[in-house]
Amino acid sequence: MTMIAELRRQFADWIGTVAETIVRTFARLDIKPPIQLIETERNLFVVRTAARSGRSAAPDCQVRLTGDAPGVAPLHEHWQAAMRGSRVELMLLPDRFLTRPLDLPRRAVEFLDAMIRSQVDRLTPWAADDAVFGYTSPAETSGDRISTTVIATPKTTLEPLIRMVESWRAGSIVLFASREPALPPANGQLASDGVTKLMERHFRGSLDAARVSRVLTAVLLAAAAMAALSMTTMSMIGGGLEEQERQLTQKISERRAALRLEGGDTTALTGLVRRKQQDAASVVLLEALSRILPDNTYVTELRIDNDKLHMVGMTQDAPALIKVLEQSPHFTHATFFAPTTRSADQAGERFHIEAAIKPHSGLGI
């Protein structure tokens, strides 16, 4: 839990630093000079703007705060236009503040803001949430210690001033406490050695570090959420694609195995195997014929055409050959496909016989 809190604090510090950098950058780009509202008497203020190179500053004017509203001297139209969106630097008289010296160890510089906040209710009559406070730059003293001066005032005394500046449609107000009740020179630099910054408030519509921090945090959280959602979606899609790829690979393997058994590449081999199993071998047929033909029979022409045997030759008894072939397990349907003839110069008959071939594993007789 401590690690999570530390990471959260570091993230908040980083966001705050980035936001302040952005605000300072936009402030430097702002061409409008800051307007100074300097208290010379109680509730009497001098309004001035610093002169810039090549431009002359407008004449000072005075505004008196009476009760809860701006005083009898209203702002000139020029100042009303200048106030809109500008940074107003408010410097009050020293008698508005309560000051208390504070002596601390030197190591307290690292967390001086938190330490002084915890000491406000002890050093002043007000709680930290009910007061506007600040401190001077720490100065080293003897004995490895530092000293500073705490400056505080109740928020209730500042609300009329803040409402007055807000009614002028200013962009922001910065509160300074001066050590001396003197009117500083018109050089646009209030925060000098004799002036301490106590508070800065940005009005509605202006750019401030807190608002920028909230926007940056929201943007980063949204980006992190979108990244997590994208990773989850891609993981789910990737898992689905991997499963589809696995199924497709399996189907391809099965199809290839089927093609090896049934495909066109093995058609010739399958035909040869079938023909080997169904057709009788020529050597077997010749061996069977040599066993069953009589000794007085001579074959002059022999042709095996698929499942047909064609045989031409000479014999003493041609019809007897038909019977011999029919009795053989290798042949069937023996018949003459041409007339049997006898020549005067030949001792036997010339026959022309055809028979159907039957597959048989043995030789037979």
Score class of each variant (00 low, 15 high):
residue 182 A to K: 08
residue 182 A to E: 12
residue 183 L to S: 02
residue 184 P to S: 05
residue 185 P to D: 11
residue 185 P to T: 09
residue 186 A to I: 07
residue 186 A to Y: 02
residue 186 A to G: 02
residue 188 G to M: 06
residue 189 Q to P: 00
residue 190 L to K: 02
residue 191 A to Q: 11
residue 191 A to S: 08
residue 191 A to H: 12
residue 193 D to A: 14
residue 194 G to Q: 10
residue 195 V to R: 13
residue 195 V to D: 03
residue 196 T to R: 06
residue 196 T to I: 12
residue 196 T to Q: 10
residue 198 L to Q: 05
residue 198 L to S: 05
residue 198 L to Y: 04
residue 200 E to S: 14
residue 201 R to Q: 15
residue 201 R to C: 07
residue 202 H to N: 10
residue 202 H to P: 06
residue 202 H to L: 02
residue 203 F to W: 10
residue 204 R to T: 13
residue 204 R to H: 11
residue 205 G to I: 12
residue 206 S to F: 07
residue 206 S to G: 15
residue 206 S to A: 15
residue 208 D to R: 04
residue 208 D to E: 10
residue 209 A to P: 06
residue 209 A to T: 14
residue 210 A to W: 04
residue 210 A to D: 15
residue 210 A to Q: 13
residue 211 R to Q: 13
residue 212 V to A: 08
residue 213 S to R: 09
residue 213 S to A: 15
residue 214 R to E: 15
residue 220 L to K: 00
residue 221 L to P: 00
residue 221 L to K: 05
residue 221 L to Q: 08
residue 222 A to V: 12
residue 222 A to P: 00
residue 223 A to L: 15
residue 224 A to L: 14
residue 224 A to E: 03
residue 225 A to D: 02
residue 226 M to K: 01
residue 228 A to P: 00
residue 228 A to E: 06
residue 229 L to M: 14
residue 230 S to L: 11
residue 230 S to A: 13
residue 231 M to E: 12
residue 231 M to R: 12
residue 232 T to D: 07
residue 232 T to W: 10
residue 232 T to G: 07
residue 233 T to V: 08
residue 234 M to Y: 07
residue 235 S to Y: 04
residue 236 M to E: 06
residue 237 I to P: 00
residue 241 L to C: 01
residue 242 E to Y: 02
residue 242 E to G: 01
residue 243 E to N: 05
residue 244 Q to Y: 02
residue 244 Q to G: 01
residue 245 E to K: 09
residue 246 R to L: 06
residue 246 R to P: 00
residue 248 L to H: 06
residue 252 I to G: 01
residue 253 S to W: 02
residue 254 E to G: 10
residue 255 R to P: 00
residue 256 R to F: 04
residue 258 A to M: 09
residue 259 L to V: 03
residue 261 L to Y: 03
residue 261 L to R: 15
residue 261 L to G: 02
residue 262 E to G: 01
residue 263 G to L: 09
residue 265 D to Q: 13
